[in-house]
Amino acid sequence: MFFSLEIWGNFSFGGGGKMLKRSWTAEEIEKSKALAGKLPTGKIAEQLGRGPVAITMKARQLQISLRTHGASSPSQIFKETAPARGTS
C-alpha cells in the first residue's frame, strides 16, 4: 500500500524510510500547557502545526491533562441531556 507524502505534513523521512521526529521548542511546550484544558486536542494541534497524536503524547509525557471543561465537554453535555434519576 502506498501513501502520498502529503499525508505526513511537516515530517521528513530519513534513510530506510523512517520518519524523523521534530523536536519540541520551549515556546511550543509553554503554548501547549497554556491551551491544555481550554481547547480540544485538534485545535491545539492546528495552532502548533502538529498532529493530534503528537499533542496527546507530549501532554502525557509532561503529565498535562487535555480534558476540556465547560459546556462543551462530553460529561457536561450528558448531564444536560440525560433524564433526571428517578423520573422515567
Results as ranks from 00 to 15, higher is better:
residue 2 F to I: 00
residue 2 F to H: 00
residue 2 F to S: 09
residue 3 F to L: 08
residue 4 S to F: 08
residue 5 L to D: 04
residue 6 E to V: 00
residue 7 I to D: 04
residue 7 I to W: 01
residue 7 I to Y: 03
residue 9 G to N: 05
residue 9 G to W: 01
residue 9 G to V: 00
residue 10 N to T: 06
residue 10 N to A: 06
residue 10 N to F: 00
residue 12 S to C: 09
residue 14 G to E: 12
residue 14 G to Y: 11
residue 14 G to K: 14
residue 15 G to H: 15
residue 15 G to N: 14
residue 16 G to P: 07
residue 18 K to M: 14
residue 19 M to H: 08
residue 20 L to V: 14
residue 20 L to D: 10
residue 22 R to F: 01
residue 23 S to N: 15
residue 24 W to A: 11
residue 24 W to Y: 13
residue 25 T to Y: 10
residue 26 A to T: 11
residue 28 E to I: 03
residue 29 I to G: 10
residue 29 I to V: 15
residue 29 I to D: 14
residue 29 I to Y: 10
residue 30 E to H: 07
residue 32 S to R: 03
residue 36 A to E: 06
residue 36 A to W: 13
residue 37 G to A: 09
residue 38 K to D: 06
residue 38 K to Y: 06
residue 41 T to H: 01
residue 41 T to P: 02
residue 41 T to G: 01
residue 42 G to H: 09
residue 42 G to C: 11
residue 42 G to V: 09
residue 43 K to E: 05
residue 44 I to E: 07
residue 45 A to T: 03
residue 46 E to F: 03
residue 46 E to H: 02
residue 46 E to Y: 03
residue 46 E to W: 01
residue 48 L to D: 09
residue 48 L to Y: 12
residue 51 G to S: 07
residue 52 P to D: 12
residue 52 P to K: 07
residue 52 P to T: 10
residue 52 P to A: 14
residue 53 V to S: 02
residue 54 A to V: 00
residue 56 T to V: 08
residue 56 T to I: 14
residue 58 K to C: 04
residue 58 K to E: 11
residue 61 Q to H: 02
residue 61 Q to N: 05
residue 61 Q to Y: 05
residue 63 Q to T: 06
residue 63 Q to Y: 02
residue 64 I to K: 11
residue 64 I to C: 04
residue 65 S to R: 05
residue 66 L to P: 04
residue 67 R to E: 13
residue 68 T to C: 12
residue 69 H to S: 15
residue 69 H to D: 12
residue 70 G to Y: 07
residue 70 G to T: 12
residue 70 G to H: 14
residue 71 A to K: 11
residue 72 S to A: 05
residue 72 S to Q: 06
residue 74 P to W: 10
residue 74 P to S: 15
residue 74 P to E: 04
residue 74 P to Q: 10
residue 74 P to N: 08
residue 75 S to C: 11
residue 75 S to N: 13
residue 78 F to S: 09
residue 78 F to W: 12
residue 81 T to D: 06
residue 82 A to F: 15
residue 83 P to C: 12
residue 83 P to E: 06
residue 83 P to R: 13
residue 84 A to T: 12
residue 85 R to T: 09
residue 86 G to N: 07
residue 87 T to E: 13
residue 87 T to Q: 07
residue 88 S to D: 14
residue 88 S to V: 13
residue 88 S to K: 15
